[in-house]
Amino acid sequence: MKTKLPLIAALYCGLCTVSSAFTLDFNGYVGKSLPTDTISILIEGYGNVTFTAGNKSTLIVDEKFKNDNGFGAPSLSFDEGDTVNVTFEGAQPLNVDFDYVGVSDGESFTTEESQFASQTFTISLEGNGDGAGLYQISWNQVPEPSSALLGLLGSALLVIRRRR
């Protein structure tokens, strides 16, 4: 038991440095519109995520769209050809996942990471249909280098202590 304790403590230290997961939805923003309002949402523990309409698009947060199973939620509504730029203003996001609602046959969202603007994604709706909505974004945050270094240092000290 005594030899396993340092190993468990080292594993715990390593787990403390893993990335944080975040999810953003549009609850509380119904009625907001782009481009008149650039929507900037503060995510506790991360920072701001900003939405800016592109290509002369006018986007509104509403509850207009539902999936075939009846699921619907406040979403940023797109018509054909509408685009929005999503900028993550906190740490580098990893595993960014955009979830959509109300996408019908013949419609599809495209998501491209900008080569010119750091941490910015461009989302657009293409195809023929009645429109769809972006209802949720989830991502992970890269841990700060100092947090990772602290976890590594703690793990190294535990291994050294174990060898003595």
Rank of each mutant, 00 (worst) to 15 (best):
S19D: 07
V103M: 05
F65K: 09
Q136S: 09
Y135K: 08
V142H: 02
P74E: 08
R161S: 14
L7S: 07
N27E: 00
P93H: 02
K32Y: 13
Y46T: 03
T110R: 06
F109C: 06
S146N: 15
V84M: 04
V84S: 09
V49D: 09
S57L: 01
G45C: 02
V142W: 03
K64P: 06
G14M: 06
V103H: 06
E112N: 11
S138N: 11
T110S: 13
G47F: 00
V101E: 04
L125I: 00
E80S: 12
T122R: 11
Y12F: 12
T87D: 12
G131N: 08
V159I: 15
S124P: 03
Q136D: 02
Y29G: 07
S40G: 12
S138C: 03
G31F: 00
I123F: 01
G127C: 04
K2R: 12
T3G: 12
I8P: 02
T58H: 11
I60S: 10
I160D: 12
D82S: 08
S75L: 00
K66W: 01
F121V: 12
A9Q: 14
S75H: 08
D79M: 06
T3L: 14
G154M: 13
F88A: 08
C16G: 09
T3D: 15
D97E: 05
T23F: 00
N48I: 04
V49P: 10
V96F: 03
S77N: 14
V30G: 01
I60M: 11
R162P: 06
G72S: 12
P145V: 14
T50L: 05
N67D: 10
S146Y: 15
E144I: 04
T122D: 09
F26T: 04
G127S: 03
S146E: 15
L134A: 03
L150Y: 13
T52A: 14
D105A: 13
F121W: 15
Y100G: 05
Q119E: 11
L152T: 14
L24V: 07
P6C: 10
I8L: 14
E113G: 11
G72T: 10
L153K: 13
E126A: 10
A156V: 15
T38H: 09
D25S: 01
F22N: 00
Y100Q: 06
E63R: 08
A10R: 11
E89I: 01
E113Y: 07
Y46W: 02
F98Q: 06
K2E: 11
I8H: 09
S77W: 03
N55D: 12
L150E: 15
N140E: 07
N128V: 08
E107M: 12
S75N: 12
E107I: 01
I41D: 15
N48L: 10
E112F: 02
G90A: 04
G31A: 05
R161W: 12
S104H: 08
L125R: 02
L125Y: 01
G90Y: 01
L11N: 00
G127K: 02
Q141D: 10
T52W: 03
R163K: 13
G154D: 10
N128I: 07
M1Y: 11
F98W: 04
E63S: 06
I39G: 12
P145R: 06
Q136T: 02
L153M: 14
I137T: 07
